[in-house]
Design a protein around this nucleic acid. Structure first.
Lengths: 253, 253
DNA sequence: CGGAGAGTTGAGAAACCTCAAAGCAGGTGG
DNA sequence: CCACCTGCTTTGAGGTTTCTCAACTCTCCG
């Protein structure tokens, strides 16, 4: 059981019925609205046939390595990070099942960041030339690929807003709410989950030091907004957390 | 003359010869490596046929408006910004001739940010459905479109690194070097140019207050790194500025 | 049981922000 | 063509937030 806080029964994956292709892959990102012919489904299944397992700490790819494929996470948890010469690192994202990694490498055919497994994970490899070829034949797939890339751009803009104009409390609240929302979308509890990353990694992602993360979590706990126990988090007062971020909808992180 | 600091003669646009299609458009982003047939060129020209002029301060599109087209800047200067409910604004980018705006809207068919002209500008509108259709027929165009989107993702990651782990001096140096590099790539002086944006806008982009921008520019000037006069900037010590950023290559902003 | 990595907490320092005042540039209307 | 007005910029002083450094505790694994 990878997800200790998995909800009782609940809709495991909300729109499972529309997940025609790649259902074995848990490719939420590729859940197409979807009217494919049997032959098209066969092609999609073939495209997503390469599966691979990674252990915690394994690199899915490294900055500088050659780009061949996009990767869809089936199970597990990843982080992506860019490294600065002088040792500074910046975590650029945390990825969950159904999300796609590797989009950054398309531009130069070379990966511009590292992708590291934060727990034992399974991925589905999508050879990019095959994906492009297939998307020339299937306009729906083409559009979907574009949407995925565009969504990544919007997500990044959200993080720029966060890094550029929010205070520590707001950043952390936004982060927790975002995790909450993404767990909920996958059928897990939106209020209790386990952090897969360290304080250091959260801090790097949010542009703060690990001590600030720790302090702010403690502060939230004192104020009954959350209950923290090491990597276990329970969100006690979602409305208050949302008010902190200054908006009712979840921010795309 | 839009660009007072335009270089004497110099290669106006470095690889002009490869700019088969859209040369009238100055679509640097669409400079394909490129072996198109006459018919394909005709199709590309048709795609890029819609031109439009904007005055300083005009909105190219607004957050919330419906997505129809991508926009290629032919001449002029734009900024993109996302607005927070509570009035906070975050500038997400400054765009120059040859760059593409509007990629964020593909994900939801609704624009997620505003695009505002910082000076009188001309744009070339690219209806997105036509672009997708054509890119299904022309793999080279398809790949190019993907690279453009991916490049935007890499750029955003660079800004996340900047916002997340750099100090004011470093951010501003990175910003100036980035402008320098982009002007140079367009045949303008890499060391003397006019800022099209206010201190406030630079600050918003870099996650700093306008006073900090002003102070840091003054500090750079005291140290003979640059010469500032209102919106006119001259970079006097590129090596030192690069050292400040902590890397020799230009950061993608 | 011991060690290493992760997390917490405190105190002081540094970076940046806020508020405020004054100077400057550029556009508009008389 | 000048005067004025508005918005942009500069600079200062003091306050806040976050960082740095350090000590200590906790947890997880072997």
């Amino acid at each position: 059981m990878q997800y200790p806080y998995k909800n009782k029964v609940q809709k495991a994956v909300s729109n499972a019925s529309t997940q025609i292709a790649c259902s074995s892959c848990n490719l939420r990102e590729f859940c197409l609205p979807a009217d494919f012919t049997a032959d098209e489904v066969r092609q999609l299944d073939q495209l997503t046939s390469i599966k691979r397992a990674y252990r915690r700490g394994d690199y899915l790819y490294r900055s500088g390595s050659k780009f061949e494929s996009l990767y869809a996470i089936r199970t597990g948890f990843f982080k992506t990070q860019v490294l600065h010469e002088d040792g500074r690192e910046q975590v650029t994202g945390f990825q969950m099942p159904g999300e796609i990694i590797g989009l950054d490498a398309i531009s130069t055919d070379i990966h511009s960041c590292d992708a590291v497994a934060l727990e034992d994970s399974e991925i589905c490899e999508l050879p990019f030339d095959k994906l492009e070829e297939l998307s020339r034949q299937l306009p729906t797939l083409q559009r979907h690929l574009h949407k995925i890339m565009s969504r990544e751009i919007v997500r990044d803009q959200g993080i720029m807003l966060l890094l550029g104009s929010m205070r520590a409390e707001e950043r952390l609240a936004a982060f927790l709410l975002n995790l909450s929302q993404r767990f909920a979308a996958r059928g897990y509890s939106s209020t209790a989950f386990r952090l897969r990353m360290t304080r250091q990694e959260i801090g790097s992602y949010l542009g703060l030091k690990l001590e600030t993360i720790s302090r702010t979590l403690s502060y939230f706990q004192e104020n009954k907004l959350i209950e923290v126990n090491n990597k276990s988090i329970e969100l006690l007062d979602l409305p208050h957390l949302r008010r902190l971020v200054g908006q009712e909808r979840g921010v795309p992180l």
